[in-house]
Simulated scan of single mutants.
Amino acid sequence: MASNENSRSAAEIVAAEWSDILSYGTDLINPAVPRAAYQHPSLRELWPMVSHGVLYLSRCTQYPWSRDVGTAFPQSAGGYRVRRESDKTLIGVADTVEEAYELIANNLPDNCGPAVVGTADDL
């Protein structure tokens, strides 16, 4: 853990990362994606990260991240396929990004709370 993370709470670390991701341009992600996720208080408490234009959410702030929160994958024909990586479960298919993050928010793991400082092993 970086020394600056030792002095900051998980909520502060998560909030700072959300602030960064919400400012990303279209070269990294469709800005509507993090905005749709951020509208849900339960998702706003999770650690956000972007890879290949996809927003991933984790219950911890360090690698290895948890993989038990759904992810919305954009489909070439439009819409989103929402899948949980930990067990490859298809949570559903959504026509809009807002519907996709509603599915994710409604299918969080049991006892899912704010992200913790640490790795998935710390959960």
Rank of each mutant, 00 (worst) to 15 (best):
I21D: 01
S66K: 04
R59L: 10
W18M: 10
R35C: 04
A32T: 03
F73E: 07
S58Y: 07
P64S: 12
H40Q: 10
S66A: 10
C112I: 05
M49Y: 13
R44L: 09
S23T: 06
P31D: 02
C60S: 13
C112N: 08
P48F: 08
A36S: 07
D110V: 10
D68W: 15
L46G: 10
A100C: 03
L43I: 05
V33W: 03
P64F: 03
H52N: 14
P64W: 04
A36I: 01
L22A: 03
K88G: 07
T26G: 09
A94V: 07
A36M: 02
S66P: 06
E102T: 14
S42F: 02
L43R: 02
A36W: 00
S58E: 09
S66V: 04
G25E: 00
S23P: 09
V14P: 01
H52K: 13
R81F: 15
S42Y: 03
W18S: 11
R83E: 15
S58M: 07
P41Y: 02
K88H: 15
D20Q: 12
Y56C: 14
I29A: 04
V14N: 02
S86N: 09
L22N: 04
F73I: 06
P109M: 05
L46D: 06
N30E: 11
E102L: 11
Q75W: 05
V69D: 00
A105C: 13
F73Q: 06
R83M: 15
L22Q: 04
R44M: 12
I13T: 12
V54Y: 11
P41G: 05
V93I: 15
V93W: 01
C112M: 06
L22R: 03
T61V: 10
Y80C: 09
D27A: 02
L46Y: 14
E102M: 09
I91V: 02
S23R: 08
L55Q: 11
M49K: 14
G78F: 04
G92M: 00
K88Y: 13
T61M: 13
F73M: 08
R84T: 06
W47P: 07
Y101F: 14
A36H: 01
I104D: 00
D87C: 08
R44W: 08
I91F: 00
A72L: 06
G25A: 00
R44N: 13
E99S: 15
Q39R: 14
E17T: 14
V50C: 05
A77T: 12
G92P: 00
Y101R: 03
D95I: 06
N30A: 11
Q75Y: 05
T89H: 11
K88R: 12
L90T: 03
Y56W: 12
R81I: 11
V33R: 09
V54M: 10
S51V: 08
N111S: 15
G53T: 14
T26F: 03
W65C: 13
R84C: 11
Q39A: 15
A100W: 00
I91M: 00
S23F: 05
Y101M: 04
S76E: 13
P74L: 04
L22V: 02
N111W: 12
T71Q: 04
Y101V: 02
L43M: 08
S19Y: 03
A72D: 11
T71N: 06
T61H: 11
D20L: 09
P34A: 04
Y24N: 03
N30T: 06
A94Q: 11
W47V: 05
Q75A: 10
T96A: 01
V54L: 11
P48I: 10
H40C: 08
R67Q: 13
I21M: 01
S19P: 05
N30H: 09
